[in-house]
């Protein structure tokens, strides 16, 4: 069964076709990636995503109609880029008549890290006390969430200034932090680079593999829109 997975919650657009029941010899965690792309695209997620979806389908040698489900990262992430991915997934799924599953982008990063630690002899480990995922929230803030050693989220996602994160009593000083390494200095610890990827997104979509019906695709905004109801009318005549 072929699934299109995509994420636009970070500065990198991620798209891939994943087989969730591949031939036994080729599978990894029961999954086979047919084609994946990760492209840094800054503020051009819509433009990039439009070209990457046909590209991964072409590379996979499949047609749109062969997709059985769509998985999308719901963030947290900067709003405009995040919405491009969520809207794309919702409209694709609607047009194809297939379900769309939303997952927390941090869960996708964490699940992938935990899966790699269990299967790849490259030094990737998960400490017994768990780990933290951090991504860029712009405006000098970060999104972060805590995971246990099985890759299950136990706190978050939150949005905070790094200085406030470090000052929290429950902050895991000297613990493993993965995600956007730009925060290494501000979080006073090395952030091991990690981002969402199609396999991680599908692994984190537990409802998909369990055959459950998907929930609504609601982005994890975490912040309210910036807007204040106007105060009293400003007078134009000087008093």
């Amino acid at each position: 069964m072929l699934v299109l997975a995509l994420d636009t919650a970070t500065p990198t657009v991620v798209v891939g076709v994943v087989d969730i029941d591949p031939p036994a010899e080729s599978g990894w965690y029961g999954l086979g990636a047919r084609a994946t792309r990760s492209v840094p695209s800054g503020n051009r997620h819509a433009e990039t995503l439009g070209a990457l979806i046909p590209a991964v389908l072409h590379e996979s040698g499949i047609r749109m109609a062969e997709l059985a489900a769509v998985v999308v990262g719901l963030g947290p992430g900067p709003f405009t880029g995040l919405r491009v991915g969520v809207m794309t997934a919702a409209a694709l799924a609607d047009a194809l008549g297939v379900p769309a599953y939303g997952v927390c982008t941090h869960d996708a990063i964490a699940t992938m890290h935990e899966a790699l630690a269990g299967s790849v002899p490259d030094g990737t480990t998960v400490p017994a006390e768990g780990f933290t995922v951090v991504t860029d929230a712009r405006r000098k803030e970060c999104y972060w969430a805590d995971y246990n050693s099985s890759g299950i989220r136990i706190s978050g996602p939150h949005v905070e200034r790094p200085a406030d994160v470090v000052a929290r009593p429950d902050w895991r000083r000297n613990g493993l932090v993965i995600g956007d390494s730009v925060f290494s200095e501000a979080l006073e610890t090395e952030v091991v680079p990690a981002g969402p990827d199609p396999m991680g997104l599908v692994l984190a979509a537990r409802g998909l593999t369990a055959g459950e019906r998907p929930g609504p695709l609601e982005p994890l905004y975490l912040r309210r829109p910036d807007a204040q109801p106007p105060s009293a009318r400003k007078l134009v005549t000087p008093r």
């Binding site: 819509a46 709003f79 405009t80 491009v84 809207m87 794309t88 409209a91 694709l92 609607d94």
Partner: peptide, 17 residues
């Protein structure tokens, strides 16, 4: 911009699919 991009993403996805 942010509002336009929602429509563009949706239209593109319908067109592709």
């Amino acid at each position: 911009t942010g509002a336009l991009l929602v429509g563009v993403a949706a239209a593109k996805a319908y067109a592709l699919a």
